[in-house]
Simulated scan of single mutants.
Amino acid sequence: MSTTNLLRLILLAAIWGGSFLFMRIAAPVLGAAVLIEYRVLFASLFLAVIALILKKPLNLRENWKHYLILGLFNSALPFLLFGFAARTLSASLLAVLNATTPLWGTLIAAVWTRHMVSAKVMLGLLMGACGVALLVGFDHVSSKPGAGIAIAAVLFAAFNYGVASNYAKQAKAVEPFANAHGSMWASTLLVAPALPFFPVPGEPTMGIMAAVLALGILCSGIAYLLYFRLIQDIGPSSALTVTFLSPLFGILWGILFLGEHVGWYTLVGAAIVITGTALVTGFRPSFGFLKKQPVA
Rank of each mutant, 00 (worst) to 15 (best):
G18S: 08
Y224F: 14
G17C: 12
F84Q: 08
F22Q: 01
A95P: 13
W64S: 05
G124H: 04
L30K: 05
G146R: 10
E260T: 00
I231F: 08
F84A: 14
I274H: 12
F42W: 08
V117C: 02
K292T: 14
A33E: 07
L267S: 07
F289L: 02
I234N: 03
A14T: 05
L230E: 06
L45N: 05
L135P: 00
H181D: 05
L218M: 11
V212Q: 00
R114C: 00
A239K: 00
I208W: 01
A178S: 13
R24A: 10
K55C: 04
L12I: 13
F283H: 01
A26V: 03
V29Q: 01
V34R: 02
L60P: 14
P294T: 11
R8N: 10
I50M: 05
Q293K: 12
Q232A: 14
F84L: 09
H140T: 09
V117F: 09
L103H: 11
L60K: 13
G137M: 06
M122L: 08
P294D: 10
Y224A: 06
A180F: 10
V268M: 12
L77W: 12
A168D: 15
A110H: 03
L256V: 10
K169G: 05
V212I: 12
G250N: 06
V96T: 07
W112I: 08
M116P: 00
A95E: 00
L290R: 15
L52I: 02
A153E: 04
M209T: 02
R229V: 15
L77V: 13
Y161V: 10
V268G: 04
P102M: 15
L54M: 03
L240W: 04
S183L: 01
F22R: 04
